[in-house]
Design a protein around this nucleic acid. Structure first.
Lengths: 408, 408
DNA sequence: GCCTGTTTGTTGCACGGTACCACAAACATT
DNA sequence: AATGTTTGTGGTACCGTGCAACAAACAGGC
């Protein structure tokens, strides 16, 4: 908190570095950790022992793989050493998962919902129903370090307040508070926008691993972006950064649900696709699937709607690329599914409009985590406090003779 | 460099924190530093002594200001303890300054240039001419820690390569290398885009002090933004982030110097203003001044050109605000001068298009550093290595009996 | 099967840096 | 002049990492 550093700071940072490494990059040998951190062998050994005592990592005898020298034991994140509950609230479905350290999905349930958008209370009831059984698994309650929620609509980062979710018909939802009361557990509840969390997931475990500057552009029903710059998520003063669906691209265009007009979302959103293909704009996933199948089959009407969308996608993306200079753009949600169909018009607009004399043009790829990207991002966000300060969130158990354990 | 921390890390961080504090926030008493850092009195004392021994700070007897207790000595940044050379290359002028620690402008020369844009060689010759005398001041050469350069056009952050500067007619300029060879000193030369550096300056010493999320939007001849998010400058993968002048706002609009068409710059740049007012688009500062005076005097033609620009300014800005959720937007360069004239149409577009149900709307203000913002930002950027690691850049002098000093 | 060389975990000690405590200095108040 | 408050100073303790020597565990060659 305070800028001053002392010996606690350094211990915390080093434990954090090592835990984060094994959590994100998978099992590492101790000597790998020495190389990565630059710390002394003895120090790494001590740090690993402390993490193991706290139940966060486990060591396995290192396999000898043909090279000379004493084999280095591999350090694994302990999936049951710390767990989080991840919730992803999309317009047409709801997903709840239990995720263990190391990113292991221990349990996962998804409910799709056709027809009219659900009420907030319905969604919360479903969430409780789906999450309760996961939390009742033995050992989970004691090892739960947080709950992460991905929500549609602008989310205030400070307190997880969802201002409105036009495509669900909700407004003024104190989401973090509601979820916290729902489960009534003494762990932090973090709510973020689905695109922000999708970006985090693709950055840490998806198509953007190793990429420190990326844009995750996603379409659920509305359009939003999650942005990572310099390895850090873009948040903004209040948490509303990335609402690029409401950037004007047609200054005197059609009016938008947000109150403005000519927003990008009005030409690239789900409703724009359906309308362009001559379908019911509120037809939902079934209609979208139909349009996609028809376009893939080569039907002229749906095809031209998809291509028009691709062109507008390229126009808007070009602006974002000029603004952020990303290394990679990840297309998620509907855009991820459209990606193979729209590359041609999209790339044409990008080539014409991206101010890049550079020989190293931006790569546009489809999401590698698919619909689960926001869910995984919510889990990662919920793990963040533990990763930043393992000691604070995983107390050292009191060890009795014989190995029995009890929390202090 | 390596993620691991040790006792050197902590010493470096604490020295850095204290030096940065007195550099940016002005003289502080020792007890202020204790409060800010959270460190112990004895530790702060030791740190201050080390910085003083390295000539970076000076202590003055604390004035007793009516409160009980022993007065705390004030710690000042030593302006001659470390200096940088700052260069700002604009289209119509060139500024060179010698800046001392604490942000003291020790010397400053500006040359305006009317008529045809200067060649690169002319600008470099002028820079050398203006900078040489500053560097010959006694003690400067030994205390110079870097050279910072603000340049128009996209700048590759890695090596300070300026891809092109259409409004100067330059292209493919290895600017950092050229400046380094020019002065032939053994200090780092850092080149950045003028808007990026303007943003840094306004963030650290201007209209954005204490604001961690801001957009500095500036117009020299072209339009560019410097963005600070979460207290950090937005750089991008290669350093080209913030080129918002080439975001399409009129998808089928006029062609732009960048090769694309409908760019924002084509409706809000200097040329757009002059063209809208019926003047020579390449008329330069004299014509711009004439238009501004005429508009302020109430002349209908210039006035309506200014108002139209204001409207487009608002349309584009709304998109940036939705994208970044800044707390403050600082208008620099031409936009800073236009600010009082365009608030009405600009605010109208912002109000209509910014997706803000929030009670805390973004503040749009004029630059408080004016034309010198990029210059000051260049100086701050050049100080950065020293501030991040004072020990590395300011060796402890060898102290002889009696207080005479000599560098190792 | 033994010896050698290599890589790596382990252990005890040194070093660097900050925290803490007691004391002194410098102020205001009464 | 006495008292209380705030702050710098000096010595010691504590904590964490670095280092060096040793032991453990492997491959390869004879």
């Amino acid at each position: 908190m305070t800028p001053g550093s002392n010996s606690e700071t350094i211990r915390r940072d080093n434990l954090s570095t090592i835990l984060r490494e094994v959590h994100l990059s998978g099992p590492r040998s101790r000597s790998d950790l020495v190389a990565v951190t630059g710390l002394n062998r003895s120090t790494v050994g001590d740090l690993v022992i402390e993490l193991a005592e706290r139940g966060l990592v486990r060591e396995q005898r290192g396999d000898s793989l043909g090279s000379p020298g004493r084999p280095s034991p591999t350090v694994h994140a302990a999936p049951e050493g710390a767990v989080v509950l991840a919730v992803s609230i999309a317009v047409h479905w709801l997903t709840v998962a239990l995720v263990g350290l190391g990113g292991h999905m221990l349990d996962r349930v998804r409910r799709d919902r056709a027809g009219a958008p659900p009420t907030l209370d319905q969604v919360l009831a479903d969430t409780l129903d789906m999450g309760r059984s996961m939390l009742q698994r033995p050992g989970v309650r004691d090892r739960l370090v947080g709950i992460g929620v991905a929500a549609v609509g602008p989310v205030r980062s400070q307190d997880g307040y969802v201002h409105f979710a036009p495509n669900l018909g909700w407004s003024a939802v104190p989401m973090a508070e509601r979820i916290a009361r729902l489960f009534d557990l003494d762990v932090p509840v973090v709510v973020r926008n689905e695109a922000d969390l999708g970006a985090r997931a693709e950055h840490l475990r998806g198509a953007g691993v190793g990429v420190d500057d990326l844009i995750y552009l996603s379409c659920d029903v509305g359009v939003g972006a999650g942005i990572v710059t310099g390895g850090r998520p873009l948040v903004g003063a209040r948490g509303y950064a990335g609402e690029v669906g409401h950037v004007a691209v047609v200054p005197d265009g059609a009016s938008c649900g947000c109150g403005s007009h000519g927003c990008w979302e009005t030409v690239v959103g789900e409703r724009a696709l359906l309308r362009g293909a001559g379908r019911d704009p509120d037809g939902g996933p079934r209609e979208v699937d139909a349009v996609l199948r028809a376009a893939e089959a080569g039907e002229l009407g749906p095809m031209s709607a998809v291509l028009a969308l691709g062109r507008w996608l390229g126009i808007g993306l070009a602006g974002l690329v000029n603004t952020f200079d990303p290394q990679v753009v990840v297309l998620g949600g509907l855009f991820g599914r459209l990606a193979p169909l729209v590359h041609e018009p999209m790339d044409a607009e990008l080539a014409a409009r991206v101010m890049s004399v550079s020989r190293d043009p931006v790569r546009v790829v489809a999401s590698s985590l698919g619909d689960d990207a926001p869910l995984m991002g919510a889990a990662e966000r919920a793990f963040e406090p533990l990763l930043a300060d393992p000691v604070r969130w995983a107390p050292r158990p009191f060890v009795l003779r014989g190995g029995a354990m009890a929390n202090a």
